[in-house]
Computed example of a mutant assay.
Amino acid sequence: MRLEVDNAAVGYGGRTVLSGVSFALEQGEVGCLLGPSAAGKTTLLRAVAGFEPLLAGAIRGDGQVLSGPGVRLPPESRHVGMVFQDHALLPHLDVLGNVQFGLFRQPRRQAESRARDMLELVGLADAGARAPHELSGGQQQRVALARALAARPRLVLLDEPFSSLDPNLRESLALDVRAALKHEGVGALLVTHSQIEAFAMADRIGVVGLGHLQQWGRAYDLYHRPANRFVAGFVGEGVLLSGRVDDEGHVTTPFGAVRSRVAAAGTATDVDVLLRPDDVIHDDDAPLQARIVARHFRGAEFLYTLELDDGQRVESLVPSHHDHAVGQRIGVRLDLEHVVVFPRETQ
């Protein structure tokens, strides 16, 4: 299904929480709504499913209006599968029965064959006779996905599907879920507040916050080409370094001048330059030095927090065999592929 959300608004308790939302998800793509808690992500997902009304705008599936002015197609008529945060497995049925539950209109042998195929797809081929409570949280989530896929939906919706799992399992399970969706050729829309899940699963990500969809695009673009300060701050790590841009687009920073596409209108303008930790390179031969004020060991890398001579701080990812102590000064330089500049905000 090609999903199109057009200028949609949703809310609850008589209050609009998200408005002006527009994006498109192509057939077979995995999309994600990423944002902080209470941003309206789940409410919008439920509106796509048909469980919540729209306050404005429209939702279309393959050109058909699912929700819009005077139209609200019931959930069972949308050909959409839903995977809930709490799995919603039926405790009185075994795993195979749970997956087979939505196939009651099919001949029994055909439904059972389809259910077994889906359990094999999610790596639980031998778990059909087990009870849901005998499974781990990650296994229960796989069963919920298998049940959603068994009915051959045109789109699968996933509401914070990995939030109850150990953080170490989330990325690997997200990759497995993505592989299962791609195998079936089914698109999906995921809601999460976890960048790890979003980056692992999604072809396109929408950052939701402050009542609006702030940016819709690939993870690479959200990280390297954020549309605004909110996206820059919410996606990935980084700091905003003070700079000054001239009318030719040269930005003066403590690291020297860098080139930006942003040009001032004939006068110098104060700006903030977004620096990701991978933009700041440890280089013993660099003329600029910074003092290490904090360090976090990440196995293959250290994340150093560095203080420049003017008091501004930046972060740098450094291979972990460069083991420097807090208080030590090290040489640093910039390696900027994407120069992202925001006008300086005044209080």
Rank of each mutant, 00 (worst) to 15 (best):
G209M: 04
V208N: 03
L155M: 12
Q214L: 01
D159K: 03
H212K: 05
R152H: 06
I196M: 13
H133R: 15
A150D: 05
R218D: 00
R152W: 01
V143T: 05
K182V: 14
Q195G: 15
L189P: 11
D159M: 05
G206Q: 03
E134R: 06
G123M: 04
L149G: 10
Y223T: 01
V191W: 12
P153C: 02
A219N: 00
D176T: 08
A179I: 08
Q214G: 03
G209S: 06
Y223D: 02
S194W: 14
E184A: 11
G138P: 01
A179F: 06
M201Y: 09
E184H: 02
E134F: 13
E160R: 04
P161S: 13
G128H: 10
L119P: 10
F199Y: 12
L175I: 02
A174F: 09
L169I: 03
G187P: 00
A125W: 01
V177F: 12
G123D: 10
L222S: 00
G138F: 02
E134T: 01
L189N: 05
V143N: 00
R147W: 01
G138W: 00
G137F: 15
V186M: 14
R116S: 10
H212C: 01
Q215K: 08
R218H: 00
G137M: 12
D221E: 07
L119V: 10
L135W: 07
A180G: 09
L181Y: 13
M118P: 14
L119N: 10
K182F: 03
G138S: 08
G138R: 11
A127C: 08
D221V: 06
D159S: 11
A129V: 09
H183I: 00
I196G: 07
P132N: 13
E171D: 11
A202S: 14
A127Y: 12
S164Q: 15
A127P: 15
L145Y: 10
D221L: 04
D203W: 09
E197A: 00
A174R: 06
R142Y: 07
A131W: 06
A179V: 07
V143D: 09
L158M: 15
V207H: 10
P132L: 07
G137C: 12
V191N: 03
L145M: 10
V177W: 08
G211Q: 05
A125Y: 04
H193D: 09
R142Q: 08
V143C: 01
L189C: 09
S163K: 14
S164D: 09
A202C: 10
L189S: 12
L119A: 13
H183V: 04
Y220P: 02
R178L: 13
E160N: 06
S172W: 10
P132R: 07
A151I: 11
R152V: 08
A150S: 02
H193C: 02
V122Q: 07
L121H: 06
A125L: 03
L181G: 10
I196Q: 12
A219H: 09
V177P: 14
A179E: 05
V156E: 08
L189F: 02
A129R: 03
Q215L: 06
G217V: 01
L189W: 08
R218V: 04
L165C: 11
E184D: 11
N168Y: 05
H193Y: 04
F199A: 13
A115E: 03
L173V: 05
D221S: 02
D117K: 09
